[in-house]
């Protein structure tokens, strides 16, 4: 007699039966959720809040990454000459810079070119017509060797700082590296908060599912008596969890899109002052689908936690 023997041969349960179960369970779960809409809404808001913060940090981090990539000045610095510096003096310095061994290219921008570039920004040109002379300085964009470290780049740049015609030298990379460091920090923070708040979302769902389970304890006992498997019994609670998680993700998505809309205008103004176009990341379908998926997964985990914990306590087997 084999150890795995059963008193009766097992009848094959058709795949269609499992499919039917799922369909009817989804119908029941949706009905259950909507019949207790107030509670469900509260759970959605809680989960949504828990998800919005880490997801928001993720968006910030991604935008920083995109911004730093957009910036093509990683291996360059800008030299701004004094207004009214003579062309001869400027050319002399440019020649000097070109001769430096670490420098690859130097391109100069005359005050007139700078003005032309600005003329694409209407408000600024309007303001400038009030001025008698061109207030913009000549500048030079200096590209250095790709391999150059930030320290060396700053060193090279500072060599020209003391020269008379130079007003200011700007090493964008320092700024950018700071931005990247902030991005890195935000990313870490996002992960930490993501794990923390993700666990929070799981616990919220687990508590809510547990409540629903408690209400149906009698039913679970009866189901066990008539031979329902644990999978059959837990299925409705996993779907409830999924609905809670999905609703939470929806709330988080709404919060984030509202935040993006609010932030886009001021960020656009800030960025355009650096001559960059802002194009915030995060309003694409992939992000929102991902958010929804994470919500569903967290919800199902919450449902699993609740039902596994409770079913083990129901002493019938």
């Amino acid at each position: 007699m084999a150890a795995s023997k059963e008193p009766w041969p097992r009848s094959k349960r058709p795949i269609a039966a499992t499919f039917r179960d799922h369909v009817s369970v989804i119908r029941d779960s949706v009905r259950f959720t909507s019949s207790r809409f107030g509670t469900s809404l509260l759970v959605w808001l809680l989960i949504g809040t828990a998800m919005a913060l880490p997801a928001g940090l993720y968006l910030i981090e991604r935008n920083i990454e995109v911004i730093s990539r957009q910036w093509d000045s990683l291996n360059s610095f800008s030299v701004y000459f004094e207004v009214g510096a003579s062309v001869g003096d400027i050319n002399e310095l440019v020649q000097q810079i070109r001769n430096h061994s670490d420098i690859v290219t130097v391109s100069t921008v005359t005050p007139e070119e700078a003005l032309n570039e600005f003329s694409s920004y209407k408000e600024i040109t309007d303001a400038m017509t009030l001025l008698e002379s061109n207030p913009l300085p000549a500048s030079a964009r200096v590209t250095v060797d790709d391999q150059l470290s930030l320290e060396r780049l700053s060193e090279v740049a500072s060599q020209f700082e003391a020269v008379g015609v130079v007003d200011e030298i700007v090493v964008e990379r320092a700024w950018l590296q700071r931005l990247q460091a902030i991005g890195e920090f935000i990313s870490r923070l996002g992960w930490v908060l993501g794990i923390l708040f993700g666990a929070g979302a799981v616990l919220i769902t687990a508590a809510s599912v547990r409540l629903a389970l408690e209400m149906r304890l009698e039913e679970i006992k009866v189901l066990k008596l008539v031979g329902a498997t644990n999978a059959f019994i837990t299925r409705p609670f996993l779907y409830s969890g999924a609905i809670y998680g999905l609703g939470g993700a929806l709330v988080a998505a709404m919060v984030l899109s509202a935040a993006l809309i609010l932030l886009e205008a001021p960020l656009g103004a800030l960025w355009s002052s650096y001559g960059q176009m802002v194009n915030l990341q995060g309003d694409e379908p992939a992000f929102y689908s991902g958010l929804g998926l994470v919500g569903v997964i967290l919800g199902v985990i919450g449902g699993l936690v609740a039902s596994n914990q409770r079913l083990r306590e129901i002493n019938i087997d």
Binding site: E6, L225, V226, G227, A228
Partner: peptide
């Protein structure tokens, strides 16, 4: 002739269905 005292828990549902 199957000892149901030793029936593993996962086989109980199918047993009860009969």
């Amino acid at each position: 002739d199957v000892n149901i005292v030793k029936l593993p828990v996962r086989k109980i549902p199918a047993y009860r269905q009969n």
